[in-house]
């Protein structure tokens, strides 16, 4: 790890000011990804501003929904009774991710800001446009089994690794942030970005902004949802493909549909056309298949990840079937519902 200054912020204002005052400063909360990256010299902050003592660690009812403080640990969100009652999709996605130890340390805000698990990004010995803009992307012609099939650019084919964010995308959460120019609310779909020609930027956060909370809207997908995660072992592994599905059903007709994919793109992937296609239709595998085809029509695989296109197609169909049937995927029983 490089040398850095360490300061502790007592208030949100202090935190924002500390970051504004030092261009090399970074916030640190749970540290589960930042410390990891610092040990690999991928992140070399000049100053760490410890925000763990800020009063952002509560889950409260808010505008008919829930407000998850940025510092609430992932395990706490996953175990929260209100979250489980109203947003079980979120709890399920959290339990699908990482390990109990990591979920105890990782925070809601930190999870939003996790960086990709691309091998090349992590390995200082190789070029990487995300780590070192302009240096190249060896993943495109290298080992790209885990890489993106949707929304990638000529500069970067990395994926976003979070499970939680896939659920939040489907739930259309809002991210509340505060920065030098005050507060603003960022719709979840706009929070993460595609790599384009600036793959070093994962999100639309502006310099000096801090995440205050993630707000869940007053909607009810608690009956028809699933988080289906497919990976290379049965636990403690990142998704090859994951599906967050949330439906509102009227009998066997879909009244409202939300669908987000993980492991396939630089951000949780949604497709408005596919969701619109589902609306008002009967919940059948054929319908689900049509939606999957719409989403994957623009898929662009590489040498080793072509299987993800078919895997995603099948996972979408299966995930929507689970959601429609009200049989969400268990995260402990490894049989797939």
């Amino acid at each position: 790890m490089n040398r850095f200054e360490y300061t502790r912020a007592g208030t949100v204002q202090e935190a924002v000011q500390a970051l504004a005052a030092d261009p090399a400063a970074r916030f640190i909360a749970g540290g589960t990804n930042l410390v990891d990256l610092m040990k690999y010299n991928v992140e070399r902050p000049g100053r760490l501003v410890d925000i763990t003592r800020l009063p952002l660690d509560e889950i409260v009812q808010h505008e008919g929904g829930l407000r998850l403080g940025a510092l609430v640990p992932n395990a706490t969100v996953a175990g929260d009774p209100l979250v489980n009652e109203r947003y079980p999709l979120l709890a399920s996605a959290l339990l699908a991710g990482a390990s109990p130890q990591l979920r105890n340390a990782a925070t809601t805000g930190g999870n939003l800001l996790q960086r990709t698990r691309c091998y090349y990004f992590y390995d200082e010995g190789t070029p990487c446009n995300k780590r070192q803009p302009g240096s190249g992307c060896p993943a495109m012609t290298g080992v790209n089994r885990i890489h993106a099939i949707l929304g990638a650019s000529d500069t970067c084919i990395a994926t976003h690794p979070s499970d939680m964010c896939v659920a939040l995308a489907a739930l259309e959460a809002t991210v509340q942030v505060e920065g030098p120019n005050g507060r603003r609310a960022i719709p979840f779909a706009e929070f993460h970005r595609l790599p384009g020609d600036e793959p070093q930027r994962d999100t639309t956060l502006r310099r000096g902004e801090i995440v205050l909370s993630v707000d869940l809207p007053d909607e009810d997908f608690s009956k028809h949802y699933t988080y289906l995660k497919l990976r290379d072992r049965l636990s403690y592994a990142f998704a090859l493909v994951s599906v967050a599905a949330a439906l509102e059903m009227d009998g066997d007709t879909i009244r409202k549909a939300r669908l987000a994919l993980g492991g396939v793109a630089h951000k949780p992937w949604r497709n408005a056309e596919a969701e619109a296609l589902l609306q008002g239709k009967r919940a059948t595998r054929e319908t689900f298949r049509e939606a999957a085809d719409v989403i994957l029509a623009e898929a662009r695989p590489y040498a080793h990840n072509a299987f993800k296109v078919e895997l995603a197609r099948r996972a979408i169909v299966r995930g929507l079937s689970q959601a429609a049937a009200g049989t969400p995927q268990s995260q402990t029983d490894k049989r797939i519902a």
Binding site: R117, Y119, Y120, Y122, D123, G125, T126, P138, T141, G142, V143, R145, I146, D232, R233, L234, S235, Y236, A237, F238, K334
Partner: peptide, 24 residues
């Protein structure tokens, strides 16, 4: 997994080189 362009094993950690975990 070897990247033959670089001659380098790329999944050189326990997060990406998968050994069985308890759930397996």
């Amino acid at each position: 997994m070897l990247d033959h362009n670089l001659g380098r094993i790329m999944n050189h950690n326990l997060g990406e080189y998968h050994v069985p975990v308890n759930a397996d």
